[in-house]
Amino acid sequence: MSDERSDEQLIDAVLNGERSAFGLLFRRYQYRIAHAVMKYVHEQADVNDVVQESFIKAYRALPDFRGSSSFYSWIYRIAINCAKNFAVSHGSRAVNSFDVDAPETESYDSSGKLTDTDSPEALLSTRQLKRKVDDTLASMPEELRTALVLRQVEGKSYDEIAAAVGCPVGTVRSRIFRAREILVKAVSPFMEHV
């Protein structure tokens, strides 16, 4: 996966005394983890608590993270367990009857259908964001789009992208940054707190 190298660097920094690097891991995965937790916990305040608890548990157990799976898979499993425990302790019936232990299964319930635990407003907001990103990508200069897609979707390194498109690594870095900035400006109006 494309984020693994960066995750490893951040974990290494945390284990060498830079606690704030774990905050970056939280910020990177908070949106996906919050979505996963929402399948078991419905109140927004409770979702926030469970997400935070999950990451604190992960921080405390970080020396035990061996890297056999990605950091995201690891934190995902921790979060699902925390969410299930929360749901059980609060008498919620939202817990599915089977174990969810892989990120790939997060969009399905026990009957195999897509879950609809997200509020209509939240779904609309996410769809709007996705559409905005797609539209903006389509309209940006091709060399910027190519660099960002190769990096973000294909998981290529800067060296690999430079070799693929035939330009210096510094140019790749600059193109990816400029593409991201264009996207940030496009989605900012949709986001209040992010």
């Binding site: 908070q30 949106y31 996906r32 919050a34 979505h35 996963a36 929402m38 927004q44 979702v47 926030n48 997060e106 969009s107 997200d118 939240a122 907001s125 996410t126 964001l129 996705k130 990103v133 990508l137 960002l148 897609v149 973000q152 979707v153 989605v187 986001m191 707190h193 992010v194």
Partner: peptide
């Protein structure tokens, strides 16, 4: 969003 992940924005 580019990778098509499901997200929830707090």
């Amino acid at each position: 969003l580019m990778k098509g992940e499901d997200v929830a924005v707090p």
